[in-house]
Design a binder for these strands. Structure first.
Lengths: 218, 218
DNA sequence: TAGATTGTTAATCGATTAACAATC
DNA sequence: TAGATTGTTAATCGATTAACAATC
């Protein structure tokens, strides 16, 4: 409850990725008027291992949990949001204002994570200049200039695969450091750039594959 | 190159999730007219560890690689698509025809993975009955009936969070076995149902968090 | 043949799970 | 006090990386 984002012990990658789920659930509980929760209860609710939850909570919580009762929910929420950086505003640009771009622009959840999409870019002249979900659509030739001028570090690529590399190069030229790529191609970037690939089709296919295996077993 | 999807040795979850990236890249190489590739080359192209790639290829390939030259690309592609089940058609239903639903419906990549979205459902009377990306939008009250009648096993939830649980219950009632959930809530389901959560906001936030850590280090 | 690449066995690493004493 | 839950140390598990002989 005290200082800022000074995460002392580093949290494992996997634990970090579980945090949003804990957070979601804790906020739900809070909405229902519950103020204190113990790790075995969370584990049961989210179908996770008790020890895992206990360790995850211990890793993020600044205040200690009380044996028998557990943790104060509001404290946990604060700590988790802090660890995840939800309390700082982080700007991003979106390239590609098609269906997927629109979906991302309209996504309410970004705000509560401190993520802010500053502007959308597109090459299509018929939509450049219009507004989409309350944000101006700008021409791609302004992309790298704007990133640099506004000191933006995150770029989201939601363009067809044959344009993705070009867009990526422009983002890099604009000084972007991290790319969230929805185009199903491998992007070539300098080693310093962080790329997170999101392949919708592959995700669904893998879900289906896991399902098949599960059916086969039983 | 011989028999069907009879994956003898089970492939690790993580390896399976790398397959679509290999596949993407191999198809690209094939398009460029290349017919043979060695694992160190793939590793270099995709910035992966050489041994990892070698093991992954060995795990899926039915034909052996030749020392010095490597693997025949067309064989690898066939094997990977087979492992991932791209050669079978798998039906799915989509619930929620908003921006995100539209993005998923219009997504070209599903076809090549053998995934087929049969229909979209929504509660909004103003869009029920219309066509979206070439697919009829049906009323949600037909959801579970249609799933059962058509023997569909996969449901995609792209509705606001407060409707997600209801929709999920209807999918389960319709006999669905796997759920791809885009709503930021934990869904309560029978243990036999497979749920894959996709939290856009959290994904972006975690990317940003990793970026912050990387900046801090250097 | 010499050298690159293969398949495979062993060593390392990281994360999950189990065990247990400390505490409200 | 008794019992549930905590924090922490140790054991297990799975995946990645390293090492090396076999081969085209």
């Amino acid at each position: 409850m005290n200082d800022f984002n000074d995460s002392p012990i580093s949290i494992s990658t996997q634990a970090l990725e579980r945090m949003p789920y804990y957070l979601q659930h804790l906020k739900q509980l809070q909405k229902e008027g519950i103020t204190v929760i113990a790790s075995p209860a969370i584990a049961a609710d989210l179908s996770l291992n008790e020890v895992q939850v206990r360790k995850d909570l211990a890793a993020v919580s600044t205040s200690k949990g009380k044996p028998k009762s557990g943790f104060i929910i509001s404290d946990l929420i604060y700590n988790m949001e802090n660890i995840l950086g939800y309390h700082n505003v982080k700007d991003a640009v979106l390239v590609g204002a098609g269906y997927l771009g629109s979906a991302l622009l309209s996504y309410k959840g970004f705000d509560s994570c401190g993520m802010h999409i500053v502007a959308a870019f597109d090459i299509d002249d018929t939509i450049v200049g219009t507004e989409l979900c309350g944000k101006k659509v700008l021409p791609v030739n302004k992309l790298s200039g704007m990133c640099r001028r506004m000191n933006i570090h995150i770029g989201i690529i939601a363009v067809p695969e044959d344009q993705a590399q070009t867009v990526c190069d422009q983002l890099v030229a604009g000084g972007i450091l991290a790319v969230w790529n929805f185009a199903p191609v491998h992007l070539n970037t300098p080693e310093t750039i962080m790329v997170k690939n999101e392949n919708m089709a592959a995700s669904l296919a893998i879900l289906s594959k896991h399902l098949q295996e599960k059916i086969k077993q039983s």
